[in-house]
Deep mutational scan, measured.
Amino acid sequence: ETGKELVLALYDYQEKSPREVTMKKGDILTLLNSTNKDWWKVEVNDRQGFVPAAYVKKL
C-alpha cells in the first residue's frame, strides 16, 4: 500500500509485555508511529505493538 513506511528489523526482539511484538532480524515491518524516540509502534502479521527504536531502521 502506498503511504506506508517500512522498517527493517536489525536484531531479534522477544516481546516482554502484551503491548510489544516479537520480530526476527531481517523482518520488514510496517511503521505506524515513530514519535517516541525509544519505542516505535509497528504492525507485523496483523498484530500491532511496540519495538525498541534502536532495533529497527527506516527503509
Rank of each mutant, 00 (worst) to 15 (best):
Y55D: 05
L32D: 01
F50L: 10
A54M: 11
P52M: 02
S17P: 05
K4N: 10
L6V: 08
Q14P: 06
K37I: 10
V51L: 02
V42N: 00
F50C: 13
K37N: 12
F50D: 04
K57F: 09
W40C: 04
E43M: 11
T22F: 04
P18A: 11
R19C: 15
S34M: 09
K24A: 08
D12G: 06
K24E: 06
P52S: 02
D38W: 15
P52C: 04
S17W: 06
F50H: 05
D27R: 03
G49N: 01
S34R: 07
E20N: 06
L31W: 01
L8Y: 10
W40E: 01
N45P: 13
T30F: 12
G49T: 02
Q14H: 14
L6N: 06
Q14T: 14
D46I: 06
V51K: 00
P52D: 02
P52N: 02
L32C: 07
V21E: 00
A9D: 00
V21A: 04
G26K: 02
L59R: 03
D27K: 03
V7Q: 01
Q14G: 07
E20H: 06
G49Q: 01
L29H: 03
K25L: 05
W40D: 00
V44T: 15
Q48T: 10
L8G: 03
V51G: 00
V7S: 03
T35W: 10
W40L: 05
L32G: 01
Y55C: 13
T35M: 09
D46M: 10
L59M: 10
N33Q: 10
L6G: 04
M23R: 00
E5F: 12
W39T: 02
R19Y: 13
D12C: 06
K24H: 10
V7M: 05
K57V: 15
K4R: 13
V44C: 11
K24N: 09
I28N: 02
D27C: 07
Y13K: 00
K58A: 09
R19A: 12
T22E: 04
L31P: 00
V56K: 00
A9S: 05
A53I: 03
N45Q: 13
K37E: 11
L29F: 06
I28W: 05
E5C: 15
I28C: 07
A54C: 14
V44I: 15
T2E: 14
D38C: 14
F50N: 04
E20L: 05
K57P: 02
K25C: 08
L29W: 03
V51P: 00
W39K: 02
P18L: 09
A54P: 08
M23A: 02
K41C: 14
N45C: 14
M23Q: 02
K25N: 04
A9M: 02
L6E: 07
V21Q: 03
F50Q: 04
K24R: 13
T35G: 12
V42H: 00
W39M: 05
K24L: 08
L8S: 05
V7A: 11
W39D: 01
G49C: 03
G49D: 00
T2Y: 12
E15Y: 04
N45T: 10
T30E: 11
L59P: 04
L10S: 03
G49W: 03
T2C: 15
R47N: 06
W39H: 03
T2Q: 14
Q14Y: 15
L29D: 00
K57C: 15
R19I: 13
K57Y: 08
K57T: 13
D12K: 03
V7I: 08
V7W: 07
Q48I: 14
Q48M: 10
D38M: 12
S34C: 12
I28R: 05
L59K: 04
N45W: 09
R47W: 04
P18E: 10
E43S: 10
W39R: 03
T30Y: 10
A54W: 10
K58H: 09
V51C: 04
D12R: 03
T22L: 02
M23I: 15
L6H: 09
Y55K: 09
F50A: 03
K58I: 14
K4E: 09
D38F: 15
Y13Q: 00
Y11S: 09
N36H: 11
T2V: 12
V51Y: 01
V21I: 13
K58W: 07
V42F: 00
L10D: 02
L59Y: 08
T22K: 04
R47Q: 08
Y11R: 15
T2L: 12
K16F: 05
W40Q: 01
K25S: 07
N33M: 08
Q48F: 08
E15N: 06
L8N: 02
L59Q: 05
F50K: 03
G3D: 12
E43R: 09
E15G: 15
A9P: 01
S34F: 06
G49Y: 05
D38S: 09
K16Q: 14
N45E: 14
N36R: 08
K25T: 07
W39P: 00
Q14L: 13
R19E: 12
K41E: 13
N36F: 08
L8D: 01
L6F: 15
V21K: 02
E15I: 06
S34P: 06
G49F: 07
D27H: 05
Q14I: 14
V56E: 02
L31D: 00
T22C: 06
K25H: 06
E20A: 06
G26T: 01
R19P: 05
Y13W: 11
N33F: 06
K58G: 07
T2D: 13
E20S: 06
S34L: 04
E20P: 04
V51D: 01
L32E: 02
V7F: 07
E5Y: 11
K41W: 15
P18D: 13
T30M: 11
N45H: 14
D27V: 04
N36T: 06
V7G: 14
T22A: 07
Y55A: 13
Q14D: 14
D27P: 00
T35H: 11
N36Y: 08
D38V: 13
V56H: 01
K58N: 08
N36A: 08
K25W: 04
Y55P: 02
N45R: 14
T2G: 14
M23S: 01
V42P: 00
G3M: 14
K25P: 03
V56F: 05
G26A: 03
W40R: 01
M23Y: 01
R47Y: 05
W40P: 01
E1D: 14
N45S: 11
L29G: 13
L59E: 05
M23T: 03
S34G: 12
S34W: 07
E43F: 06
T30I: 15
A9G: 03
L10E: 04
K41L: 15
A9C: 13
K57R: 13
V7T: 03
M23D: 00
V7L: 12
M23C: 06
V44E: 04
E5N: 10
S17E: 09
K57E: 14
V21L: 15
V56D: 01
R47P: 00
G26L: 02
G3P: 13
D12W: 03
K41F: 15
T35N: 14
N45D: 14
L6W: 12
W40A: 04
W40Y: 07
S17M: 08
K25G: 05
D27G: 04
A54E: 10
D27L: 05
Y55G: 07
A53Y: 02
A53G: 05
T30D: 05
I28D: 00
K24S: 09
N36V: 05
A54L: 10
E5G: 09
D46Q: 12
K24W: 10
L29K: 00
K24P: 01
K24G: 05
L59N: 04
N33R: 06
T22Q: 04
Q14W: 13
V56R: 00
T30C: 10
D27N: 06
T30P: 15
N36K: 07
F50E: 04
L29P: 01
D12P: 06
Q48S: 12
R19V: 09
S17C: 10
V44R: 15
Y11L: 10
Q48G: 06
K58E: 07
G3T: 13
L32Q: 03
E1T: 14
E5M: 12
V56S: 01
K16D: 06
K16G: 10
P52A: 02
L10H: 03
V42E: 00
N36C: 11
V56C: 14
S17A: 08
S17F: 06
S17V: 04
L10I: 10
A54T: 12
Y55V: 08
L59H: 05
D38E: 12
V51R: 00
I28F: 06
N36M: 09
E5A: 11
V44N: 15
Q48C: 11
V7C: 14
